[in-house]
Design a protein around this nucleic acid. Structure first.
Ligand SMILES: [Mn+2]
Ligand SMILES: [Mn+2]
Ligand SMILES: [Zn+2]
Ligand SMILES: [Zn+2]
Lengths: 138, 138
DNA sequence: TCAACAGATTAGAATCATTTTAAAGAAGAA
DNA sequence: TTCTTCTTTAAAATGATTCTAATCTGTTGA
């Protein structure tokens, strides 16, 4: 497939690069996710969006895909509410505002916030990641 | 009831103060929770602990009680994993280590960590709370 | 002291997000 | 093509949490 002219070329190459077969479903979801700026979506949201874009994908595949994209580092998971997972297309070092009213996540650029003093992790452990959630209300 | 001699007097008074009837279940759970230092428990954990202490309480009551204690400010909820809620007896300003291996929470004293720069919340919103989770692995 | 009421507990059903199953379909290699 | 491997899917299963509605218990004021 020539990747210089077709509309799916970008995401096609991305999928090849991470070793995931560029199926119709993955290509469609990747376009929705990666060709619209930084996004924070739940599985249900993405499922609805896919339907609106005439992309037929089962909810099981939405979950599979989000977990696979996260697994290969194309996305990350953000936990802010019990019982619901958000998936984030922004994999750079950054943190989040969480609008408690609307249940929306919003990026805080990595340099707009900083952990002044990072405490020593307990002996025998290493820091995997630091998550800062600033919970806000309208 | 004289609150100076009986073993339940502390938690008895606490419950009265927040306007919750001191029932056998609430008294027993309050002792487990508040007479053993700062604690981070899931509903299932507390349920097992109650059983081990010969306190017969249904899981529904465990959930009711944890939510009520949280509602009146005796505890707070910490979200670190999708699909599971932790309840924290430490209501002072502090943050957490989360051991990804063991799924255990550990307090970081409020003064052992600090948010260097808190970003301006979006116009029309106010900061409700800032949560920092330092994810660690053995 | 105790009846009466409000509030609390509970077993079991319901809910909701997510995962699993296993069967049918599609992609890649040759 | 043809074969193999991976993928998708509907449907069932899972697991945490909440709800329901019946029973029970704490409180209060006669
Ligand atoms: Mn996951
Ligand atoms: Mn809750
Ligand atoms: Zn983000
Ligand atoms: Zn804590």
């Amino acid at each position: 497939m020539d990747s210089t002219v077709r509309p799916y070329s970008q995401v096609y190459d991305t999928l090849r690069k991470v070793g995931l077969r560029p199926t119709r479903q993955r290509l469609g979801l990747a376009r929705l996710l990666f060709e619209n700026g930084d996004r924070h979506v739940t599985a249900e949201q993405l499922h609805a969006e896919a339907a609106a874009a005439n992309l037929r994908v089962s909810l099981a595949t939405i979950y599979n895909t989000l977990n696979q994209f996260t697994g290969v580092g194309l996305m990350r998971e953000v936990v802010v509410e019990p019982g619901r997972s958000y998936f984030d297309t922004n994999t750079t070092d950054h943190h989040h505002f969480f609008h408690e009213d609307t249940a929306q996540l919003q990026d805080i650029p990595g340099d707009a916030i900083s952990v002044g003093k990072v405490p020593e992790p307990p002996a025998g452990t290493r820091v995997e990641r630091v998550d800062i959630i600033v919970r806000i209300r309208g």
